[in-house]
Every structure is written in structure tokens, then in C-alpha cells.
């Protein structure tokens, strides 16, 4: 009898619950749900873009280009910024997996969001990297080719100095994306019998890299006082190139024809290149292209295509005085 009463009570509670839910659902549908229905177009592919770094300029370029391409494809895109919180990226990945998105795009080191990648893999939701890094659980990472960027500038240097002279290199092996650039530059210079790498500097980057690179370059200039004893400075990124430029100008040796190149083409580097001084070239990543190509890669895979490679490279562009002020 007691059991029966409890059973009845359970039934009554169920009825009450269902009544409330149904009533609430109706009321809501009439008022608020239309707003959500408008954004959640039926049958559109649902894609979530999750990043902790939306406030950074490069990321905004990727995301805007991705959204533009996704709009052409008719997708329903949800961009989520966790404002620097990497654990929240995992949480939001779990949320959108649960919500049933068709694909996820991340812009964070996959090594830090393994739990989220696993949740997506369990639910068979493909995850793509937008300049993120490679991981067995990421279908493909879309990024720039660091090897190719280094080849552009090192070959520029070799050609500019006529395949002959002393070169100073600034490299940074502890950071893998920069380390690969140094490898290529060494190979290129090694292929010219008359080019000699007289110094290979790893600057202290704790202050941003410019100040220490300048100090190191001043010491190298002091050790090589003869005009023409240094033909070029090849830097694996822009900050050491800017530091070397400051050192050369401070030493009054800007008219010896020392060629400087950097990589990344940040605004300060573009300004220096545009003035037509010693800093002659850098390489710009195509951030918008990375965003667009990521959308195309997602579309290809969602359309049933299979990618053999797990990295998709987007071409970069050599920046010289001729195009440094182009946008």
C-alpha cells in the first residue's frame, strides 16, 4: 500500500512536471524562442569556433575571414571567446559537442585541450585547427609554412649579396615554430660556397627580443669593424631584425649595404622596411587566407572528403619596400 502511494505520487509529480514543462515551452515558443529560431536555421551545418585569443589582432583576421566564408556556405557559426581561459575552451568544446554541432574549429595549442578533443572524438565531431598545432585527434591544422617563410628570406639575402659574404643569423631553437626557420636558412646559406655564417645568436627574448638583439649586434659590429665585413643579418623573426637595425644605425654603419631580413612582417617591421633602409624584407602570413582555407577545409571534410595530410599550408607573401604599406 505504501509502495502504491509512492508510485501514485511519482505519477502525479510526472504529470505536474509535464504540465509545467509544456506550458512553459508554449509560453517560451511564443515569446523568446523565435529569436533563437532565427539564428538556428534548419538543416544548416552548425560549426563552433572556440578560441581563448579573440582579442589578439591575428586571431580576429582568421575569425572574420572564416565567418565570411561560412556565411557564403550558409553555415550557422558560433564564435566563442574564453578570454584567455584555456580550461574554459575544454568546457565549451564539451558544451557544443553535447549540443550536436557538426564541426569544431579551435585556435589554441591542442596539447592543452586534450580532454575536449577526446570528448569530440567520442561523439565523432571532427575538430580542425586554425593555426593551432597538430594532434592525432585534429583532422587538419591550417597554418603558414615556417620552412617556406624562412626559404623566402634566406634566398632573398643570398641573392641580394650576390651569393658572397659574411652573414649573422638570429635564431631561437627553444620555440619549435621558430626553430624550423633557422634550419632552412642554414641549409640555404650552406649551399652557397662563398657565404659564411660568422655568428649564430640566440637572443634573450624575455624583454621582447629587440633590446638584447641590439646589444648582441653591437658586440658583433665591434668585433667586425671593417666596412663590408658583414654583408647581411638574417633573423628568424622581426624583433631581432629590428634590434640589429638599431645597432647598425647607432654605430653609423647604415651605409655599408648590410642587408637585414625578418619574418612575420609586424607593423614595426613594415614601417622600417617602407623607409628603404637596411631592413629590406620580411614575410607576411595570410591570416585572412588561413581563416578562409579553414572554412574550405571543414566544408571538404563535412562533404565526405578525406584529407591525407594533417596540415594544410596557406601561402605567405614576401614583404619589401615595394609592398610594405599595402594592406
Amino acid at each position: 500500500m505504501g509502495l502504491q502511494a509512492i508510485w501514485n505520487l511519482g505519477e502525479v509529480l510526472d504529470v505536474i512536471r509535464n504540465t509545467i514543462l509544456t506550458a512553459a515551452r508554449r509560453a517560451l515558443l511564443a515569446t523568446v524562442a523565435t529569436a533563437f529560431a532565427a539564428t538556428a536555421a534548419l538543416a544548416a551545418e552548425k560549426v563552433a569556433v572556440i578560441t581563448p585569443y579573440l582579442a589578439q589582432p591575428g586571431t580576429q583576421f582568421y575569425v572574420d575571414a572564416f565567418k565570411a566564408r561560412a556565411a557564403e556556405l550558409g553555415w550557422d557559426v558560433n564564435v566563442i571567446d574564453t578570454a584567455g581561459d584555456v580550461a574554459a575552451v575544454i568546457s565549451r568544446m564539451e558544451d557544443v559537442v553535447n549540443q550536436g554541432v557538426d564541426a569544431i574549429v579551435i585556435n589554441v595549442d591542442p596539447a592543452q585541450v586534450g580532454a575536449g578533443l577526446q570528448a569530440a572524438a567520442d561523439a565523432k565531431v571532427p575538430v580542425f585547427g586554425m593555426d593551432a598545432g597538430t594532434d592525432p585527434l585534429i583532422v587538419a591544422n591550417v597554418t603558414s609554412n615556417g620552412y617556406a617563410m624562412a626559404a623566402e628570406t634566406s634566398v632573398y639575402v643570398a641573392n641580394r649579396i650576390g651569393g658572397k659574404g659574411n652573414v649573422v643569423m638570429f635564431t631561437f631553437d627553444p620555440f619549435p615554430p621558430v626553430q624550423v626557420r633557422g634550419v632552412i636558412a642554414k641549409a640555404v646559406f650552406g649551399n652557397f660556397p662563398d657565404i659564411k655564417v660568422i655568428d649564430n645568436v640566440t637572443p634573450d627574448v624575455s624583454d621582447g627580443g629587440i633590446a638584447d638583439s641590439r646589444a648582441k649586434m653591437e658586440a658583433i659590429l665591434a668585433a667586425n669593424p671593417e666596412p663590408g665585413s658583414i654583408s647581411a643579418v638574417w633573423a628568424a623573426w622581426d624583433q631581432p631584425a629590428l634590434g640589429a637595425l638599431q645597432a647598425i644605425e647607432a654605430a653609423g654603419r647604415q651605409n655599408e649595404g648590410i642587408v637585414i631580413t625578418g619574418i612575420d612582417a609586424n607593423p614595426q617591421a613594415r614601417d622600417a622596411i617602407a623607409t628603404g633602409g637596411n631592413f629590406e624584407a620580411s614575410v607576411a602570413q595570410d591570416f585572412a587566407g588561413i581563416g578562409r582555407t579553414t572554412a574550405d577545409t571543414v566544408a571538404y571534410v563535412l562533404g565526405g572528403g578525406t584529407l591525407k595530410q594533417n596540415v594544410v599550408y596557406v601561402p605567405t607573401k614576401l614583404i619589401t619596400a615595394a609592398n610594405a604599406t599595402d594592406k
Binding site: A24, R25, L28, V32, S91, E94, Q99, G100
Partner: peptide
């Protein structure tokens, strides 16, 4: 209740609440 109504298929599931519990644990 609002989320339960707006997200009828996913919000009140055990899986979602286990997710939430892990997300808020710290």
C-alpha cells in the same frame, strides 16, 4: 526551466549535467 525548455534535447540530459559538474569543479 528556461534552458530545459529552450534546449529540450540536450540540456536536461545526464551527460550534460555530468559535463557541467566537471566544468564547475575547480
Amino acid at each position: 526551466v528556461f534552458f530545459a525548455v529552450a534546449l529540450p534535447d540536450t540540456f536536461l540530459t545526464l551527460r550534460n549535467w555530468l559535463n557541467i559538474s566537471q566544468q564547475i569543479s575547480m
